[in-house]
Amino acid sequence: MIVVLSSILGWGVDRDWLPFNVAYRVKKLPIGSYIAWSESQVETALTCFSEPLRRAVLLAAYTGQRRGDLIKMRWDHWSGRQLYVNQEKKRAGAKDIEVYIPIHPRLAAEMLEWKKDGCDYILENCGEKWVGVNLSKRIALQVRKFGLPAGLNMHGLRKYAAAMLAEAGCTSHQIASITGHSTLEMVEHYTKSARQKVLAREAMDKLQDNFGNHGKTTN
């Protein structure tokens, strides 16, 4: 809202209709963060959601892409083994980036079936390309219908994908190569909880390796 308002007011300033732009450089408000889906919540969606929506959940969970990039994916962006994504960056001055994503076997098997529908876009609703807002509204309705926590949305699936990569032992650079994050700071923010689990498991494994099951050294 601030970006749009600043643009409108700036347009007025350029035409000498306003003395200054009061929305220029307004600080961001602390609005919190998106809720990451859990593995069980993703599986519930894949089992219960209507077909067009479960496809969106699966594609988001296994690629870590934003909603806007997901609905733009066409079949000619998929080679059978990897997806090509031209990520649109909305921040002022940020350039779009190209990302190549190897496809997980589970997603690849489903995509082979989806392609038989003969659609232009990988995600479609009754033969028509999704509009982002409509997709989000439909996901929210399904979340409510099947008793999942309020607040789960498409961006939460992006956080889920990053967390799963972190739990698999991927570095921040490796995760960013999939999700397309321009800074490692955001990747680390997304994966903080997942990394804690990995480190905790590694710590306990080391404790067991060195002291055994009964608190006695194995040396």
Rank of each mutant, 00 (worst) to 15 (best):
M1G: 14
I2S: 07
I2M: 12
I2K: 10
I2Q: 08
L5E: 05
L5G: 04
S6Y: 06
S7P: 09
I8M: 03
G10W: 03
G12C: 11
D14Y: 05
W17S: 07
W17N: 05
P19K: 13
N21C: 13
N21Q: 06
V22N: 04
V22A: 13
R25N: 15
K27C: 01
P30H: 09
P30W: 14
P30G: 07
Y34R: 09
I35F: 03
A36T: 01
A36D: 08
W37T: 12
T44Q: 12
T44I: 12
A45Q: 12
A45H: 14
L46N: 11
T47Y: 07
C48N: 09
L53A: 01
R54F: 08
A56H: 09
Y62D: 03
T63D: 11
T63V: 02
R67F: 00
I71A: 11
R74K: 13
W75G: 00
D76T: 11
H77L: 01
H77R: 04
W78F: 07
W78K: 02
R81Y: 15
L83S: 01
Q87E: 05
E88R: 14
K89R: 13
G93F: 13
K95E: 13
K95T: 04
E98Y: 09
V99Y: 08
I101S: 05
I101T: 06
P102Q: 07
P105W: 04
L107Y: 11
A108C: 03
A109H: 12
E110N: 14
E110P: 10
M111T: 00
M111D: 01
L112Q: 13
D117V: 11
D117M: 05
G118Y: 07
D120Q: 08
L123R: 10
E124Q: 15
N125P: 02
G127F: 11
W130Q: 00
V131D: 15
G132C: 12
N134K: 05
N134L: 02
L135D: 10
K137G: 05
K137L: 09
R138N: 01
A140S: 14
L141A: 10
L141K: 08
V143C: 08
V143K: 09
R144L: 12
K145Q: 08
L152V: 08
N153T: 10
H155N: 10
G156K: 03
G156F: 03
L157P: 00
L157E: 00
K159Q: 15
Y160I: 02
Y160P: 03
A161F: 12
A162M: 01
A162C: 01
M164I: 02
A166Q: 00
A168R: 15
C170R: 01
T171I: 07
S172D: 13
S172P: 03
Q174Y: 00
Q174E: 13
S177W: 03
G180F: 11
E185P: 06
M186Q: 11
E188G: 14
H189D: 14
Y190G: 02
T191N: 12
K192I: 10
S193Y: 04
S193E: 06
R195L: 12
Q196W: 04
V198C: 04
L199A: 13
A200L: 09
R201V: 15
A203N: 11
M204Y: 14
D205N: 10
Q208E: 15
N210M: 07
N210G: 05
F211E: 00
H214V: 00
G215N: 15
N219G: 13
N219D: 13
